[in-house]
Write a protein that binds this DNA or RNA. Structure first.
Lengths: 210, 210
DNA sequence: TGAAACTGCAACAGTGGTGTAGCGGATACC
DNA sequence: GGTATCCGCTACACCACTGTTGCAGTTTCA
């Protein structure tokens, strides 16, 4: 799904009842492979059918159902972990767009294209409502904060209206990104989609009088 | 939820197995009341928790669970009926905005406000993917068609760019409406929200040079 | 190479939801 | 006022999914 992962998978307790990854002994190589296979399969299966069973996820991952239960205390724990992993990927993608240093318009294009690419692969997990206090929630908040900062920079440069409501701008931006992914195959290139998103965000659909 | 309903509820078969409303004997008054209570309760409950059980829906509707099963062959049948009813409401709301006759900008504002009002009440049902061939699907297609016609009129009047992609415009419009409803209570007046949606759709968030 | 970690497999208990059935009482309708 | 319709209630069968356990065989890693 994504070649490079910026995190490491670990286990803590020995008891089967609390297999939540937090801190402790690092996983053996084959276990980490399984873990990754499970998360990726869960994303694939659940994005098609959110009510899919653990059995279906296990089959798609090429492991036994019991193996999933060994790593994740419950179905919910799996989904939570999935959300955390997806947000971590998203954050990494955004970092690569240099939101704090690149010129705002360049950063906006760059980030949009990267986010679109990531969202294609983690559609289900990224649409999940983040649980309060989770790593995913923290990540989403951080992303929103940096998004607002980028827009503030853009506004200071005259790219946005001086009185623009940055929070509304952010929400519109998110909505446009979401919409760009709903296309029925007629246009899927992230760079082209990003251009359309940014153009629409800034200027809407009315004629440009200039 | 909505005071006036533009449809009538009926039953066909006697068998419990196929209680799908299509044509036949009209319902008794109390039965129609129950039917309406069930649909509205389903919307309320499922919008909070899409995985809620029939038991929870029944309790919210103030009826016994078996009563629901008497009218709807299955959980899925209930949800399908809910989707049909919601789209019927939406269509009625749009009709009242005179999309074919009013000046485009006026119609756009009017329709947006009405749609927002309807979507608040039928959030769950209207977010449902319509089943192919269902009344809901037919209604959605009709709505999309009329939306495109309205945008075409707007474009001919110079309100939209001459080369505007009307399908993309429609998708952006839908996305903005959806986003306007996600506000965290700081602004809920449909008229104000509609103004914001239309303004953003037409001109984006950049400064207006004029 | 040997211990520790990991996995598949088979089997099991528990749970919660779905859908059916019939009866007796209440309600609407003509 | 009589009849067809509707509803609540209780009870039941069924099923799919979750989560657990133990063991035997395999893989990793020091």
């Amino acid at each position: 799904m994504c070649a490079t992962a910026a995190y490491r998978l670990v286990v803590i307790g020995e008891s089967r009842a609390d297999a939540a990854p937090q801190a402790g002994r690092p996983l053996r190589a084959d276990a980490e492979r399984s873990m990754r296979a499970i998360l990726e399969a869960a994303e694939r299966v659940l994005s098609t059918n959110p009510a899919a069973s653990m059995e279906q996820v296990a089959e798609a991952a090429g492991v036994a159902r019991t193996t999933i239960h060994r790593r994740f205390a419950s179905r919910q724990a799996l989904i939570d972990a999935l959300a955390d992993a997806a947000v971590a990927h998203l954050r990494a993608a955004i970092d690569q767009g240099r939101p704090e240093t690149a010129p705002p318009l360049v950063a906006l294009h760059e980030i949009t294209a990267r986010v679109l690419r990531t969202k294609i692969s983690w559609r289900f997990a990224l649409d999940l409502p983040a649980k309060a206090g989770s790593a995913a929630a923290e990540g989403q908040q951080d992303i929103a904060r940096r998004c607002l900062e980028l827009f503030a920079r853009a506004r200071d440069l005259g790219l946005l209206a001086a009185g623009a409501d940055l929070e509304w701008t952010r929400r519109v931006y998110y909505a446009l990104i979401g919409e760009a992914l709903h296309g029925d195959g007629e246009q899927t290139d992230p760079d082209i989609l990003a251009g359309r998103v940014v153009e629409t965000l800034l200027h809407g659909v009315s004629p440009r009088d200039r």
